[in-house]
């Protein structure tokens, strides 16, 4: 059942990314391009995504996940060095190619050699990340 719900969530996530235009790198770069022909679509995607999720967080209060276990707990929020350096690095890559991890996978079937190259490089980066993280500790 957990796997079934995971497939469902992944499927809806993929369909949502496709429908919203987030697998089109030019739309993402258009959102980031404040000095060019600025494209606000991504703000609508974010807005549309935040609303159901805010309701879900509210509903989760005092309850348990339907399939067992516990909802995630979050420690004292700390905006540490790793959060900021990592986010800046992510932003640079996101700006350069117009892809983030979700759309990179969602578009792999039609993204051509460029999409495959990006995904392989991203996975390599994820493999290297623990080493980089250790240097920042």
């Amino acid at each position: 059942m957990r796997n079934l719900m995971a497939i469902l969530a992944g499927s809806m996530f993929g369909a949502g990314l496709l429908i919203s235009g987030m697998t089109n790198t030019l739309k993402v770069q258009g959102w980031l391009d404040v000095f060019g022909n600025w494209d606000p679509t991504l703000a609508f995607v974010m807005g549309g995504g935040v609303i159901p999720m805010a309701l879900a967080w509210a509903y989760s209060k005092g309850r348990k996940p339907a399939l067992g276990g516990e909802f995630p707990t979050f420690g004292k929020p700390e905006a540490d060095k790793k959060l900021i350096i990592g986010s800046v690095m992510f932003g640079i890559g996101w700006g350069l190619a117009g892809l983030c991890p979700g759309p990179a996978l969602a578009s792999i079937s039609f993204g051509g050699i460029g999409g495959v190259t990006f995904l392989v490089a991203m996975l390599a980066g994820m493999l290297l990340a623990p080493m980089v993280r250790a240097k920042l500790d």
Binding site: A6, I19, V45, M46, G48, M53, A56, S60
Partner: peptide, 17 residues
């Protein structure tokens, strides 16, 4: 599309935690 993305995240949270 964003609504679909948010709903997928809501399902993953509420079902799988």
């Amino acid at each position: 599309g964003g609504g679909l993305i948010g709903t997928s995240a809501a399902i993953f949270l509420l079902a799988n935690g």
